[in-house]
Deep mutational scan, measured.
Amino acid sequence: MQRVNMIMAESPGLITICLLGYLLSAECTVFLDHENANKILNRPKRYNSGKLEEFVQGNLERECMEEKCSFEEAREVFENTERTTEFWKQYVDGDQCESNPCLNGGSCKDDINSYECWCPFGFEGKNCELDVTCNIKNGRCEQFCKNSADNKVVCSCTEGYRLAENQKSCEPAVPFPCGRVSVSQTSKLTRAETVFPDVDYVNSTEAETILDNITQSTQSFNDFTRVVGGEDAKPGQFPWQVVLNGKVDAFCGGSIVNEKWIVTAAHCVETGVKITVVAGEHNIEETEHTEQKRNVIRIIPHHNYNAAINKYNHDIALLELDEPLVLNSYVTPICIADKEYTNIFLKFGSGYVSGWGRVFHKGRSALVLQYLRVPLVDRATCLRSTKFTIYNNMFCAGFHEGGRDSCQGDSGGPHVTEVEGTSFLTGIISWGEECAMKGKYGIYTKVSRYVNWIKEKTKLT
């Protein structure tokens, strides 16, 4: 034993070699072989497995989906700052455009905790909710729209109204504003409101030439003092309507412009014939205590009207009353817009006519005020429907199939267009061939041609 100890002390290297040989010859039971080890760690190889990531292109799944990435790591994937920024906006807080917040056709661009709407022409605001041009839906104005110097929408209202708090709607500024039905039992019968379409306001006024200088022999019209197929109006439903009495009662109609003036057809009036105007009328054979009678003290036909040349060209006249009318729910003026808007309103496509005229061709006159909704007829169809001249200051309205029309005794009465609950004068009943005849239409004086003249002559002093 002493000898062994001496050998170990003198030859430590020998001992180490012996131990190493023993270990190498022993069977290893701690580690699995290569094949079995792979069965336990069965993990798919990654895209760049075996390579240094710093030297390969980034992978979106590896960089940002398996674990949260930084902007720089995302930049490695896209290799483009702009594309990385677009991805980053949604990656950080989701897609803010998912709810489609942009209105009126706006395009949404996502941002971090926010979004941006790219608005089409005519709109602005956070969600493109603000109209900035009158060309689109009248700028959301209830009545009139004008573009300011910086191309912003400025709404306005006709006389007797003021802008509401929203700067879009119009509200009454006087007790009985024009064009409004205020009798409670008839307010439910107000005709369907007309909503502004998209309009090209630059070209809204037709490029028409008034044929002022045409000389033409007097034409022989049949029954051209021209509501057939209409309905009984309720008291106060058309408070701007008046009836004219002269040699015979209810020979023509008219509309209240203001307390002192009536507008009617020029062919209705004769110099030297006494005319009485009755406002607030409903049943011409009954006294309903809503009527107001006034005498006409002055007749002003349009300066281009000449019955000797043509009885229905420039067929418009103004009547001055001896005493002002007292405005109330049964006696209310009709609204008159400017030339541009009167023309736009007419193009809405349908209007209402009213009167006490004959209820059928050569038949009896109506006792109760009649009204009828009539569609506008395109000019080409209008011209083809008659052998008589249709001037540019006239328009056609009615039904091709016949059966409904204005008729004798309705002449001078109103053709009105309702705009968001307020009625505007767009025409004056003038003439036609018979009444409600198939293929024939009622012919009306186009008020847009005469609004400046009306307003100039009827100013209240």
Rank of each mutant, 00 (worst) to 15 (best):
Q2C: 14
R3G: 15
V4S: 13
V4Q: 10
M6C: 15
M6V: 11
P12L: 14
P12Y: 14
I17S: 03
L19W: 10
Y22L: 07
A26C: 13
A26R: 01
A26E: 02
E27H: 08
F31Y: 14
D33Q: 07
A37C: 05
I40C: 05
L41T: 04
S49R: 05
G50N: 10
L52W: 06
E54I: 00
V56K: 00
L60F: 06
M65A: 07
E66W: 03
E67D: 03
S70N: 12
F71M: 07
F71C: 02
V77N: 07
R83K: 08
Q90L: 09
D95P: 09
E98G: 09
S99W: 07
S99C: 12
N104A: 04
S107I: 04
K109M: 10
K109I: 10
I112L: 12
N113F: 04
C119A: 02
F121R: 13
G122V: 03
G122M: 08
K126Q: 13
D131W: 12
C134R: 03
N135V: 12
I136T: 05
E142W: 06
F144N: 00
A149R: 10
D150K: 09
N151R: 10
Y161C: 00
Y161G: 01
A164C: 05
C178V: 01
C178M: 01
G179T: 01
G179F: 01
V181Q: 11
K188M: 14
A192R: 05
E193H: 12
V195A: 14
F196Y: 13
D200G: 12
N203H: 09
T209W: 09
D212I: 10
N213K: 06
T218L: 10
Q219A: 15
S220E: 11
F221Y: 10
N222F: 10
R226Q: 15
D232N: 13
K234N: 07
L244A: 02
G246R: 05
F251P: 06
C252P: 01
C252G: 01
G254C: 02
N258G: 04
A265E: 00
H267P: 00
C268I: 01
G272R: 11
G272F: 07
G272W: 06
I275T: 05
V277F: 00
V278L: 08
V278R: 07
A279F: 02
G280E: 01
I284P: 07
T287S: 13
T290G: 06
K293P: 05
H302V: 02
H303F: 07
H303Q: 11
A307F: 08
I316M: 04
I316C: 02
A317M: 04
E320D: 00
E323C: 05
P324S: 06
S329W: 05
T332M: 06
F345A: 04
F348W: 10
F348R: 10
F348A: 14
G349N: 07
G351S: 08
Y352W: 05
S354Q: 10
S354C: 08
S354K: 07
S354H: 05
G355T: 07
G357C: 12
R364M: 09
S365M: 11
L367K: 14
V377W: 03
D378N: 10
A380H: 08
K387V: 05
T389S: 07
T389Q: 15
Y391F: 12
Y391Q: 15
N393R: 03
F395M: 01
F399P: 15
H400K: 13
C407M: 06
G409H: 11
D410H: 15
G412E: 04
G413S: 15
G413F: 05
P414C: 11
V416S: 07
E418W: 06
V419M: 08
G427W: 00
G427V: 01
S430W: 03
E434S: 14
K438S: 15
K440M: 05
G442T: 14
V447A: 08
V447C: 03
S448C: 04
I454F: 00
K455V: 06
K457S: 09
K459T: 15
L460K: 13
T461C: 08
